[in-house]
Amino acid sequence: NRTSFTQEQIEALEKEFERTHYPDVFARERLAAKIDLPEARIQVWFSNRRAKWRR
């Protein structure tokens, strides 16, 4: 089942994506704690966001 992201979560994710397309585990963990999502969801979001960026 899909995770629905809040506007705040999307903004935080997009901001980090501007900084780096490949956040390391520490950056992902920090973001996970900040926006209250599992680190695995963040990893998947970045993977999908990079795919979207390449299109």
Rank of each mutant, 00 (worst) to 15 (best):
I42R: 00
W53E: 14
R54D: 09
R2C: 15
R28L: 14
E16K: 01
L37Q: 12
L37R: 03
F46L: 05
I42Y: 01
V25H: 14
Q7C: 11
Q43C: 08
F5Q: 05
K52I: 09
F46S: 03
P38D: 13
Y22N: 08
T6L: 05
N1L: 04
L13C: 03
N48W: 06
I42Q: 01
E11G: 10
A33T: 06
K34Y: 04
R55W: 05
R54I: 07
P23A: 02
K15G: 11
T20K: 03
R49Y: 04
K34Q: 15
E39V: 12
Y22A: 05
W45V: 01
R49P: 01
E16W: 02
F26G: 15
R30G: 06
A51W: 06
S47E: 15
E14N: 04
S47W: 11
P23Q: 02
R50W: 01
E39P: 13
R19G: 05
E8R: 10
H21T: 06
Q43D: 06
Q43K: 11
A12G: 06
R55A: 15
F26W: 09
R55E: 05
I10S: 15
T6M: 04
R2L: 13
T6F: 03
W53N: 10
P23F: 03
K15Y: 08
H21W: 09
L31M: 07
A33Y: 10
N48P: 01
A12Q: 15
Q7L: 09
F17Y: 04
K34W: 03
E14C: 02
A33P: 06
S47V: 14
R49V: 02
I42D: 01
R55S: 14
L13I: 02
A40C: 11
L37A: 09
T6A: 05
E8A: 13
E29D: 07
A51L: 07
T3Y: 06
E14S: 05
S4Y: 10
V25E: 15
I10V: 08
D24H: 01
N48Y: 04
V25A: 15
E39L: 12
F46T: 00
Q43T: 09
N48Q: 13
K34H: 04
R41A: 13
Q9M: 06
K52W: 09
E16I: 12
L31A: 01
Q9S: 03
E18G: 09
L13E: 01
E11A: 13
V44P: 02
K34F: 11
R41C: 13
N48V: 11
E39K: 05
T20F: 04
S47K: 12
F17T: 00
Y22H: 07
P23G: 01
I42N: 00
H21D: 03
E29C: 13
F17S: 01
A27M: 09
Q9D: 03
R50V: 06
T6N: 10
A51Q: 06
F5C: 09
E11C: 09
Q9I: 03
W45C: 02
R2T: 11
R30N: 09
F26C: 14
I10W: 12
S47N: 06
S4D: 15
F46C: 02
I35Q: 05
D24F: 00
A51G: 07
R50C: 03
K52V: 13
R19P: 00
Q9Y: 02
A12H: 14
F46G: 00
A27T: 13
E11K: 10
Q7D: 10
